[in-house]
Amino acid sequence: MLDFFNVYLPIAERDFNALILVAIGFSVGVLGGFFGVGGAWVVTPALNIFGFPMAYAIGTDLAHIFGKSIVATAKHRKMGNVDFKLGIWSIIGSVIGVEAGAQSVMLLTRLGLAGPVVRYTYMILLFGLGIYMIYDYATKEQRAAAAAAKAAARAAGTAPPRKAWNLPPMMHFPTSGITISFWTVMGVFFFTGYLSGFLGVGGGFIRMPALIYLIGCPTAIAVGTDLFSVLFAGAYGCLTYGIKGAVDIVAAIYMLVGASVGAQLGVTAVKYVRGYGIRLLFAIMIILAGLSVALKQFNYSVAAAWVVMCAALGMCVVIIIRLYIGFKKEQAEKLGLGH
């Protein structure tokens, strides 16, 4: 019955269901807009499940990520969530890091260790980051109380000020409201870029928590700024894979249609969810992604793809429900004020 939606992909030279492409694009668009990630880690296995030719999967995915990031970044900018200065530094640091990461993979490949080392690092990173973010969420009240007590002690002159890493030159980022050493900024983005190059991923899911925990950005600004960086990575990926002939432009357009609508909804949902809420949902998502990588490592490739796809769909539903509840609440408040 769904054959009705089949379209011919001129570059991949085969028919494929347009509805599936739009649906995958939509789900990843919602996640991308809400978490500030590209979402290649969801798209590639999802396309794989439905039999999309894998030779074109990565290029097609990157092409649609570029288009979607324009949509999401523009909307985040409207909401004051993009720190352009920080975003440009993140691109500079990441480019150097990505290349260094790729060098490490080449070295490991020569030693015959690349596959397992990369996968185990990926798993440790996803699980570690996810568990840390959940721990951070669970202990936020205690930490807030401890910070307030420390501040009070400092005000009373009984505690020394906190020692900060402040090697000059110092940089000020007014949008994020932070002043930080240039070396911290470059170090963090070099590190996230390195991991991105080492693992062969876009890196949005590494950069977003790094912006929060290592740079000190508010969560919504971390999401918007990360998307700004993803935009450039997507543009470069789109162009370079296009030159290699590995992009099916028609499939990418169908995915982009879904992703652009999804991204708008995902970004709007950020307005209704507090920073810690975004962090918690992100933590759950990357733990499930880690589970998917673990299944793949133990040769359960189909189960791995289903886990990541179901996790993405489930999270997408949660985000849309939060958006709906927030919107309804806002409408009710507006009506209440009107009367």
Partner: peptide
């Protein structure tokens, strides 16, 4: 040229749908 075309189309289609 194909690669440039893909990049431009993605940008324009994305912006229009947005």
């Amino acid at each position: 040229v194909f690669a440039i075309l893909v990049t431009v189309v993605m940008g324009v289609v994305g912006a229009l749908i947005a």
